Amino acid sequence: MPFKSNADRRHHVPKQRHRVTNWAEYDAGLRARGSLTVWFTAEAVEGWGAEARMGRGGQAKYSDLAIATALTLRAVFRLALRQTEGLIGSLLQLLGLDLAVPDHSTLSRRAETLEVVQPKAGGEPVHLLVDSTGLRLFGPGEWLIGKHGRKRRRGWKMLHLATDTDTGQIVASVLTDREADDGSQVGPLLERVGGSVASLTGDGAYDRDDVYAEVTARDPDAVVVVPPRANAVPSETAPSHPTQRDTHLRCITERGRMGWQKAPGYNWRALVEADISRWKRVIGDGLRSQTDRRQATEVAIAATVLNHMLELGRPEYVRVA
């Protein structure tokens, strides 16, 4: 990997220093992320109940807005469903609103079919940064293992994210089993991104022919910025019709790994790593839901929460050393 090129002499390389130019606005945004200010607009109060159903079947009592509001508070405060029910009831009582409180069973059942609005990219064409991480499934803890001697391994799933380079927000997310590799999820991520794609940047796990094919099929002019493997060789058509991968290999041969890393803007991939770190610190490193559909809803709501927090303020850096 490029960041390992100077591993043997990294202690001699001075660390870069940056200064935040909009510290006042960014500091206010950080405080706003922890502000517990809750209000209900007139439209939200009116739309809390579900619309009357004209066909056969039971009548829903709560709208998608009410369920999404409860599940959003659950994600922010890392609550169980019963505690979420209690929080919603307390907020409605403090605000003096005569609204029904969704019970925990309703929240669990409606999360199976809730349609969460997908985030939009900042502009077109969009520059995508992709990466993945693991999310564990809640199961028996260390106390149960020590008490009863059970050695059941906790399961986990893979979360694949696509971040917009211009805004730093998560514009697509896919949740898969742990057997799914990173490159196979480029197609599903692109399907969730509206509009055209200008570039796709990922780490060495995306150095696959099908990744280049997926991006090219979506947008023929899109650029794929992926570091080739250390033992990569040019294709047979490199002398006459070089591919994007052949171009990367030529640049690495001429400038080295670190030079190639700067040329196509590979360093921007740090933004998606920051999104993953923010996910683990704010939302957590696990999934509380038990079924696939509910887990997908949980992931979609978590991405929306992180995007809203990022809208409150982003730092602007200037390198000083």
Rank of each mutant, 00 (worst) to 15 (best):
A28V: 01
T201C: 13
T291V: 11
L95T: 09
A180H: 14
G55Q: 07
S132K: 01
H148G: 02
D98R: 10
L81T: 02
S277T: 09
R78L: 09
G29I: 01
A111F: 05
R293H: 14
E25C: 04
D207R: 02
G149L: 06
A222Q: 12
Y26L: 05
C251W: 09
I252N: 03
T297G: 12
G57E: 03
S289F: 12
E25F: 03
S289A: 15
R150I: 15
G204Q: 07
L97R: 06
W143Q: 07
V20C: 15
E25V: 04
I170K: 00
N307C: 12
Q93C: 10
R293W: 04
G34T: 00
K4P: 01
D103M: 06
P119H: 13
H241C: 08
A217F: 13
Y212L: 08
A222K: 15
G139I: 09
K262V: 04
Y266G: 02
G195H: 07
S173R: 10
G194A: 13
Y206W: 06
R9F: 01
A321Y: 12
T165V: 13
R288K: 11
L310S: 10
S184H: 10
G286R: 14
R257D: 08
G149V: 08
A302Y: 14
Q295R: 09
A263P: 01
S199I: 02
D285I: 05
T133A: 07
W23N: 05
P188W: 10
A213Q: 10
H18N: 02
V282M: 03
E46W: 00
R319W: 05
Q16S: 13
G149E: 13
A213E: 13
G89F: 07
V215S: 05
S277F: 04
T21D: 11
L161H: 09
G86M: 00
P239H: 07
M158Q: 12
T297L: 10
K151W: 03
S90R: 09
Y26F: 15
D203G: 12
N231G: 06
I67R: 00
V233R: 15
P125C: 09
T297W: 08
K157D: 04
D164W: 06
L73P: 11
R293K: 15
T163P: 06
P228A: 05
A52W: 00
Q290R: 15
G49V: 00
M1D: 13
V186W: 06
G202W: 03
Q83D: 14
R56W: 10
A162N: 03
S105C: 09
C251V: 12
